[in-house]
Write a protein that binds this DNA or RNA. Structure first.
Lengths: 349, 349
DNA sequence: ATTCAATTCCAAAGCGCTTTGGGTAATTTA
DNA sequence: TAAATTACCCAAAGCGCTTTGGAATTGAAT
C-alpha cells in the first residue's frame, strides 16, 4: 500500500533515458520527440511520478505558492469576507497549479514576514489584504521586489502597483441616493473602520449623496468600527433611541446589517415598512441560497461578489508572476443596485 | 534597498567557519561551543540570514507546512465556520514556525491531492475537515502514511487516529432538554446535512431528548441541509406555516439561526416571547463583540469555540509530526449551555 | 610525559530537480 | 557523395541546505 517514492533518477533509469530528457519531456520542451515524450508520460503516470516541489523550487527559484499574510490581532481579518475571498482565490490557484499559503501575523510583524517570504522565496507573490488610508506595505513590497496585488487600493500612486477594488465610493453614493429618492432625509451610516481605505471611500460616497441633495451631515448618524454583528446591533439600537432617529440605515457590511435587522426586530420595527435598511453586500456565500438561487434578494443593497474578486486577484497575481515585465494591472469593479424588501418610503414619524 | 540574498555558504565564509558548523550553531546542536554559536547568531542577524525553506526541506524531508484540503464544490466548506477554524489554526502554526497551506479540491480529487502531498512531501501533515458518516479519507490517509488530525470524527475505529470533536450529541440533547423543560413539545430541528458526521450525531441527541420525555418524533419537524442563512429562513417559514407549527426551533448553526430570526421577524414573532429559538453556537468571531465582550449572549445556545478547536487541532497535528511514534490523541470537547433571550415558555397557541 | 576522552570543527556526500553546453545520428542541401 | 542543418539526446554542474564520518584540538587522567 505504501507509495513507492519514485524520483526522476529512477524513472529515467527505468526508461533508459537521461534525467535531462525525461525532465524536458515532462515539462513540454521542444527538444524531445513526440514519441519519446509520450513514452515518458506513460511511465510517469504508471509509476505515479510527481516532481518534488522543494527540489524544483530549489532549482528554479519558483515556489509555486501564493502567500496571504493576515493580521491576527485586534482587527480580525479572518472573517466571513476573508473566507469568501479565499474560496475564490484558492480555486483559481488550484486550477493553475499554485498553492495558497497563509501566515498569521502579530502586530507589526508583517514587514518581517514579507522579508522572510522574499529572502528565501517561500512564495512567488503575495496578496495584500485590507489596505489602510495610510498604507505602508505597498512601498515596502515594491522595495523588496516581490510580485503582489492589492485587494482594494491605497491612496496616492494608484498606477504604480496592481490592485482590484470595487468602486466603494460610487456604490454607497448610489445606495444613499436611492434612499434619498425614496424620501429619506435622516440616513445613518454604519460604516467600517475608517482607517481602512474602503470604509473611507464609502464615507465619501455617503457624504457626496447627501451634499448633492442639500442635506447636511449629522455626525451623530455616522459610526465607524470593525464590521461585526454586535456592532450593527448596538449602533442601530443607539440610533433608534435618539430623540430624532434616522428613518434609514446604510450598513457597510451584511454582518453589521444582520445586527441591524436584529435591532429592528427587538424594537418591533419591520424593515421595509417601519424602517429602511440597506447594505453593501459582498455576496457572502453563507447568505446565498445554494439551490437554484432564484429567490429575490431580501435586502436592498449594492452588491459585488468578493469571491469573484478573490478569484480575479489570484489570476492577476499569477499573471504578474509569469510576466514580470508587464505593467501594473488595475481593475475597478462596479456594483449592482438591487432593490429588496427592507427599504421603503419613510414612515410618517 | 534590494535585499542581498545571503546564503549559508556566504555566511560561513564571512565567519571563517565551515557550513557545517554554522548550520549546527543555528540549529542548536550541542557540538558547537557557546562562544561560536553566539558569534554565528550575531552574524546571521546582522546579515538577515534565513535558510531557504526549499533547500532545507529538500535536505530534511520536512516541509514546515500543514495542509488543508477543502472541497470547493457543492457543499461549500469554505464558510465562516472554516475561517474561524483557520484563524485559530494559523495562529498556532505561526507560533511554531509552520505555515498553513490550502488547496481547493474539485469533486473526487481529494485522494489525488493527498497522494500528491505525501509523495513529494509538500506538507508534513494534513487536517481533515468535515468527516462524513461514511468517511473514506481516514483509511486512505492511514494507508499512505501521512500524519493527520480529523476535526470531528468518523464512525468506527475511533482510537486508531487522532481527532478533536465537540460532543455534538450531548450538546443538542442538552439544548433540546432545556426546551422541553421550558414546556415545549413541538420542537423543530433545523440540522446540517446528515451525511456529515456532526449533523448525524446532533440528530441522535435531539432524538434522545425527545425519547426521554416520551415525545414522539415528527419527521416534518426535521430538516437537513447545508447550513446557511436562506436555508434557515425558508425552513423556519415553512414550519411556521404548518397547521400545527412548532413552538421552538433548534438550529445546528448560527448561520441558519440568523435566517430563523429573520423568519420570525417577517412573521411578526418576537423570539423569546412568541417563539423560542436556540442554536449550536461555534462562537464565530463575526458574532462576537470585539470590545470587552461583556454583553449577555443573545441567543440561547450550546457553545464551543471553533477557533479554539482550530488552534488545538493545529497543536495536536504538530505534536504528532514531531513524535511520529506517539499513539493517536483524541479530545472530546464539552459544550456550555447558555440561556439567552430568544427562548421562553411556549406561547399559549 | 603519555594516553584517553571530550570538545570543537570540517570536507564532502547527498536531497531531487533544472539547465548549460555540448554530442551523435538522421535529414536535407550543394 | 560531402557538407550543413536539424532533431534528439546526454553528462555534469549547480540550487542551498543537512548530515555523515572523521580530524584536530583541548583538558583531564594516568
Amino acid at each position: 500500500m505504501r507509495e513507492k517514492t519514485v524520483n526522476l533518477k529512477r524513472l529515467s533509469e527505468h526508461l533508459g533515458l537521461s534525467q535531462t530528457t525525461v525532465s524536458r519531456a515532462l515539462n513540454g520542451f521542444p527538444e524531445v520527440s513526440e514519441k519519446t515524450r509520450q513514452k515518458v508520460r506513460d511511465a510517469a503516470n504508471k509509476f505515479n511520478y510527481r516532481p518534488s516541489p522543494s527540489a524544483s523550487s530549489l532549482a528554479t527559484g519558483k515556489a509555486g505558492i501564493i502567500g496571504h499574510v493576515v493580521p491576527i490581532s485586534e482587527h480580525r481579518m479572518i472573517n466571513p469576507h476573508f473566507s469568501d475571498f479565499l474560496a475564490g482565490a484558492s480555486d483559481a490557484y488550484a486550477k493553475a497549479g499554485y498553492d495558497l499559503l497563509i501566515r498569521a501575523a502579530q502586530e507589526n510583524q508583517e514587514a518581517d514576514i514579507y522579508r522572510d517570504f522574499v529572502s528565501r522565496n517561500r512564495v512567488d507573490g503575495v496578496v495584500v489584504h485590507g489596505p489602510r488610508v495610510n498604507e505602508t506595505r505597498i512601498q515596502f513590497l515594491q522595495s523588496i521586489g516581490i510580485p503582489f496585488v492589492v485587494h482594494g487600493r491605497a491612496g496616492g500612486e494608484e498606477h504604480s502597483y496592481s490592485w482590484l477594488d470595487v468602486d466603494n465610493r460610487s456604490a454607497i453614493e448610489k445606495l444613499t441616493n436611492y434612499l434619498i429618492d425614496q424620501g429619506h432625509r435622516r440616513i445613518a451610516l454604519v460604516n467600517g473602520l475608517e482607517i481602512m481605505n474602503f470604509a473611507h471611500r464609502r464615507r465619501l460616497g455617503y457624504a457626496a449623496a447627501l451634499a448633492d441633495h442639500g442635506i447636511g451631515i449629522d455626525p451623530d448618524l455616522i459610526s465607524s468600527q470593525d464590521m461585526n454583528e454586535p456592532y450593527g446591533y448596538e449602533t442601530t439600537i443607539a440610533k433608534l433611541d435618539m430623540p430624532d432617529p434616522p428613518t434609514a440605515f446604510v450598513y457597510s457590511s451584511v454582518l453589521s446589517a444582520i445586527g441591524g435587522m436584529r435591532a429592528a426586530n427587538v424594537r418591533g420595527l419591520l424593515p421595509g415598512q417601519d424602517i429602511s435598511l440597506a447594505t453593501f453586500d459582498d455576496k457572502l456565500s453563507f447568505l446565498q441560497a445554494n439551490g437554484s438561487g432564484n429567490s429575490l434578494p431580501y435586502m436592498t443593497s449594492v452588491t459585488s461578489s468578493i469571491q469573484d474578486a478573490g478569484r480575479r486577484v489570484g489570476e492577476m497575481l499569477m499573471d504578474q508572476i509569469s510576466n514580470p515585465g508587464a505593467p501594473p494591472a488595475c481593475e475597478l469593479w462596479k456594483t449592482d443596485l438591487l432593490i429588496g424588501k427592507t427599504t421603503g418610503r419613510p414612515h410618517a414619524g
